[in-house]
């Protein structure tokens, strides 16, 4: 059985300078620290254009922190992120972010439609009235995730999976080129998971780039093209075939995954 295991992954071998300029998201030397303990240390990440990349690692590995630092929500101690070769601040319109569902108060007085319309905040600005075409656009995005029938609902009346789909619809409304998602499949029902993965694959088919923090190792190979393994430090980066290996998982998760489990994951994929 051991022979069937993929070779130990090295870097994908592409010269960094080439990919940097056109990469949808390039993070260099990013360190984020809460207090005096780095949550992530000196991370380099280069997202492949038009591909789906999973950021995986154990709890507390800094997956969400990495995403937030890349988005400028958390201020890094050192390092920087560029989006399509330019600093983040100038490229905001090309990025859409889907935060963790638990990060907001779902009793907030707002409706599904209002949340979807927030995805158009850049276009609407301060005063531009919400016109029929805006509503139609938001409704179309809700329809893509199967939530159009819920447009008038207060968001607190939704199930967890439905809430997650509304968050995705808001990001879709932005019509971005780079989608960053924080645990989009955490605690959602099977129907929602299917609906979300269908939409993400559609985005990829349209040439957009998807980077998602992901926690379920059993679906990595099925859903994603590339993986980025992190445990405070970068462990590995590359295609699922080259980087999602037993040795890398062992390194990222330490003793937290049984060896049998790892074999199953990696072999199940091959």
């Amino acid at each position: 059985m051991k022979d069937a295991m993929p070779q130990l992954a090295t870097d994908e071998g592409r010269p960094v300078a080439d990919t940097l300029a056109q990469s949808p998201l390039a993070i260099r030397g990013m360190t984020v620290s809460y207090g005096e303990e780095p949550a992530i240390f000196s991370i380099d990440l280069t997202a492949e254009p038009g591909a789906m990349t999973a950021i995986i690692g154990p709890n507390g590995a800094g997956k969400s922190t990495l995403l937030k630092a890349a988005l400028g929500i958390v201020r890094p101690l050192s390092g920087s992120a560029t989006v399509f070769g330019k600093p983040l601040a100038k490229q905001r319109a090309r990025i859409a972010y889907v935060p963790q569902r638990a990060s907001v108060d779902w009793d907030f007085p707002t409706t599904v439609m209002d949340v979807a319309l927030m995805g158009l905040s850049r276009e609407l600005g301060l005063l531009r009235p919400v016109r029929a075409r805006h509503v139609a656009h938001a409704l179309a995005c809700l329809d893509r995730v199967g939530m159009a029938d819920f447009a008038d609902r207060q968001i607190g009346q939704l199930s967890g999976g439905q809430q997650q789909r509304v968050f995705l619809a808001r990001a879709l409304a932005q019509d971005a080129e780079l989608y960053l998602l924080d645990e989009p499949f955490a605690g959602v029902d099977a129907a929602t998971e299917r609906a979300i993965i269908v939409v993400l694959k559609e985005l990829r088919a349209e040439g957009r780039t998807v980077v998602a923090v992901h926690h379920d190792l059993s679906t990595v190979a099925q859903y994603f093209d590339n993986v980025f393994l992190i445990n405070r430090r970068k462990i590995a980066e590359g295609s699922v075939e080259t980087a999602f290996t037993a040795a890398n998982l062992q390194e990222a998760y330490g003793g937290r995954l049984a060896t049998g489990q790892i074999d199953q994951l990696v072999l199940g994929m091959v």
């Binding site: 988005l71 905001r92 972010y97 907001v104 949340v115 927030m118 905040s121 301060l126 005063l127 932005q174």
Partner: peptide, 22 residues
């Protein structure tokens, strides 16, 4: 009233608001 949209957006989801340019 002029600032109502960004204020509501930030109150609901500050992390998202920041990435959406508010």
């Amino acid at each position: 009233l002029l600032l109502r949209r960004p204020m509501i957006q930030v109150a609901f989801d500050p992390g998202y608001a920041e990435t959406a340019g508010t």
